[in-house]
Design a protein around this nucleic acid. Structure first.
Length: 206
DNA sequence: AGCAAGATTAGC
DNA sequence: CTAATCTTGCTA
């Protein structure tokens, strides 16, 4: 693999939709039990608190969502349905509403045996499919919430832009603000959690 | 202090 | 389609 540097804080200090889209194709490295895991981001969602009722920060700051109101390039992790964890990267910068990108799916590149062990499945494309599965595979829990990405582990690396077209569509699993087209994924990638054929058709035309 | 809801997932 | 499972945050 070619050398690549960690994404600088400035990368995240931009509008959350821009960051969500540009995060596609970027690599995420995570040291798990002294083993290096590398994965490629293939699906994300943007959450912008001021106009987004689906955002955990919509009703203001609380103990749980505090990281979303902090500096960019920090993690915001929360427990989902009492069983899973979901990982977000904070993009908020001075003067902007609290915002973060939910990492929904990745493609395993290195260290797959560790992921297989944690997930207890062998399907390569399902290892990191879905936000809850991403955290289970990488070993990310509540203790990671608020962590600065620039400290390393996990780390997001710069890299070449994704060769595949990007599909833009509406977000999944929310009951409010369902119409914002703030979900992004790499067309044709088998790790994507749920495909949107309609949006993919629009993508071909573009 | 009690309680309903939830950015999910796997299995029937 | 539904159960599983628990933390957060709102209401009394």
């Amino acid at each position: 693999m070619l050398e690549s540097a960690p994404l600088p804080r400035d990368f995240f200090a931009r509008p959350v939709q821009v960051v969500a889209r540009e995060l596609l194709g970027k690599h995420c490295t995570m040291r798990c039990d002294s083993v290096l895991v590398v994965a490629r981001i293939v699906e994300t969602e943007a959450y912008q608190s001021d106009i987004d009722q689906a955002s955990h920060a919509y009703r203001g700051r609380t103990q749980r969502n505090a990281p979303m109101f902090g500096a960019p390039a920090h993690l915001y992790v929360y427990r989902s349905y009492g069983i899973h964890h979901c990982m977000n990267v904070v993009t908020t910068h001075d003067g902007d509403p609290a915002s973060a990108v939910l990492i929904r799916a990745m493609e395993a590149l290195e260290g797959e045996p560790v992921l297989v062990e944690r997930r207890r499945i062998h399907d390569h494309w399902a290892l990191l499919r879905g936000p809850g599965n991403v955290c289970q595979a990488l070993g990310i829990d509540l203790s990671y919430s608020g962590r600065d990405l620039l400290l390393g582990n996990p780390t997001f690396l710069d890299g070449s832009p994704p060769p595949e077209p990007v599909v833009v569509t509406t977000r999944i699993g929310i009951s409010r603000s369902q119409d914002f087209p703030w979900r992004f994924y790499l067309a044709g990638n088998a790790a994507v959690s749920r495909r949107d054929r309609r949006a993919e058709a629009m993508t071909e035309r573009a």
